[in-house]
Design a binder for these strands. Structure first.
Lengths: 358, 358
DNA sequence: TATAAACGATAAATCGATTTTTCGCAGTTG
DNA sequence: CAACTGCGAAAAATCGATTTATCGTTTATA
């Protein structure tokens, strides 16, 4: 391709047209792959495109469509591995289909969530992937509904009457965690979470409780939740331990909770798994290199992203029918932070990738 | 505002015009704040806007400008806290100025970097914040140059002859790390990094070496770098230790290296800081809750983002003059992973936020 | 041979805003 | 009273593509 170094104005379709000696409409048709063009003219167009280094202006191209080839993605935050990976996946999937992904962070605020959504509506995005701050019943989903927007809800949702939803099957994963903890003999387990993520937390909690009680009806399950942020959770946890409560294991329903639990453990000089066991919902890279490695529930990011995009584009292409609610299976990585109560570290040894040195 | 529930077509400027009994040009002028409009007509326009729930279509609005009110941001990845925070900051700053941020991940690939850049050029973005995969001399910066794009380079850069650059003053931070390690008596220090981030790594290395040798000319500094990815680094590190090398401290020039170092330590059952000390460039939330807490260099994300955006918009508004190269100061958080060689854990206790329980 | 159908391509309308040009009317000036 | 100046607003051009309507040619059909 001839790199024309004209930093000034990029060639438009009219430049290509005049260079090829045809009309702009013909150029448009050639590039759109319409076959009712004489091969000779098509070739002239291709040559001109090549020679001028012409590229379609996506903005102008989208002008006449009601739905622009833009997908909006709204995440509660960008700082965690989970949402970071999610955005990366979504971006790739949008790109594959010739769409541009515009990602925005709601910063855990429902007000901001709605503002961003309004701005995306201004852009007339074809669809939105929304990971709501709280759940599917917030103002953001309502805004989408009342404005006839196309979208998919992910992560902190279970099901909705207007939008397709995709999330991790955290109830099943929690049941699996229960199986492992109770199986190791834990009889007093503390579960911590955020109450505002109502449905999700309830699902995780119920999945856990049901399974735990099924295996051992006398197991004691304490629950500590805070409403909005994690800081209240920290002080509740501190109070709880200060009261003398001494569960043998903690299951955190969210990543920040895992961090809070760890920092409270270290404050009291409790070590995992000798003093207490810990499992966290949501995995992170560092969890397998620390001492001990932290057991975690791994969410299927790729599957969630892929399924969400598939459903979204189906709707964009006009698919009717009742919304679906997908649950993607998680994986539970049992690592060294979990042992049997009263014992030393369990021998199993987590997921160390290499055998010990000879 | 009257929420008009017409999910079909949004009102255009012409709808507002006819509703207010004026021309579209007048509406545009009123909304742009032009004062040569009779107050009475302006009021009618405002009323119509309110009544119809009209909002300007940013896409159509941008059609005629050579530079659209869009800022592109290209990051090597979205998974780390650093780039996650960076995108969040950049998004907020762009938004403040009425611009839309379109972020994309180059996934540590220079080829993808250039492709993304070409796509952003198609969108005629007003400017680009590029965090290059390697450094300022890659094909992406060259593409921007040859196409007359406006942009700022951040993070893995030092200075450029065409673009403003903003990065953390990692040389100064590394000198600070050297001061702390040598000050604690470390005489054999291993530095690990990625060679492809040439200039940055060299700066960090030189900053460290110079300061360390100044304080103790007999200090031994080993360096292990791998070219592109971190996996070769892992095996080099393994070989190094297998050869019997036993530095008293490791300084990792990048986050992934810190993780690699930790996992190699745990493979050999070495504990920080008793068996070896560790400092990492780049901080992460988990580093202060692990046992031990990991010492780290904190990069000034907000300052870098803010300075980059300031410089970028200055250029967008037409500022001429030679490019500037900013270095923003870092903060070094000395935590428990650093002790004195041969000693037990040092008493200082890292940055524990709360005093121990009474 | 005259008309119709098919084909290929151009002209023109369109999307929704902004910007430039033109126009009408009122008030001044010579 | 004609010409001029201003002001406010409408009309028209523009941005760059797509889509619809239109218009010649050429070939097929009656």
């Amino acid at each position: 391709m001839a790199q024309h170094k004209s930093p000034q104005r990029r060639p438009s379709i009219h430049d290509v047209a005049s260079h090829a000696g045809v009309s702009a409409a013909t150029v448009s048709k050639v590039l759109a792959g319409v076959t009712t063009v004489k091969p000779e003219n098509a070739q002239r167009v291709f040559d001109a495109v090549e020679h001028l280094g012409y590229r379609v202006d996506p903005l102008a191209s989208d002008m006449r469509r009601a739905k622009r080839r833009i997908i909006g993605a709204i995440m509660p935050e960008f700082e965690s591995e989970f949402f970071g990976q999610m955005v990366t996946e979504l971006e790739g999937l949008a790109e594959q289909r010739g769409y541009t992904l515009v990602a925005a962070s709601s910063r855990e605020s429902e007000a901001r969530e709605t503002e961003i959504l309004a701005r995306m509506h201004d852009w007339r995005v074809a669809g939105v992937v929304l990971a709501p701050v709280r759940n599917e019943h917030g103002p953001a989903a309502a805004f989408m509904k009342s404005n006839g927007m196309t979208g998919v809800l992910i992560d902190r949702v279970l099901s909705d009457d207007a939008f397709d939803t995709v999330s991790a099957d955290s109830a099943a994963a929690s049941a699996e965690v229960a199986r492992m903890l109770v199986g190791k003999g834990h009889g007093h387990i503390l579960v911590i979470g955020l109450a505002e993520q109502a449905a999700t937390v309830r699902a995780r909690l119920e999945g856990f409780r049901t399974q735990a009680l099924a295996l051992n009806p006398s197991v004691r399950i304490d629950v500590i939740t805070s409403e909005v942020s994690v800081e209240p959770l920290r002080s509740s946890l501190r109070d709880y331990f200060a009261r003398g409560e001494r569960p043998t294991a903690v299951y955190s329903l969210l990543l920040k909770g895992t961090l809070v639990a760890l920092s409270e453990f270290r404050r009291r000089d409790w070590h995992c798994p000798n003093d207490i066991s810990l499992v966290g919902f949501d995995d992170a890279e560092w969890m397998q290199v620390t001492w001990p490695a932290i057991a975690a529930v791994v969410q299927p990011v790729r599957q969630i992203a892929s399924e969400a995009m598939t459903l979204l584009f189906r709707r964009i292409e006009g698919a009717e029918g009742p919304p679906t609610a997908r649950l993607e299976p998680c994986q539970v990585l049992m690592r060294e932070s979990v042992g049997s109560p009263g014992n030393g570290p369990h021998p199993g040894g987590g997921d160390r990738q290499q055998p010990p040195l000879s």
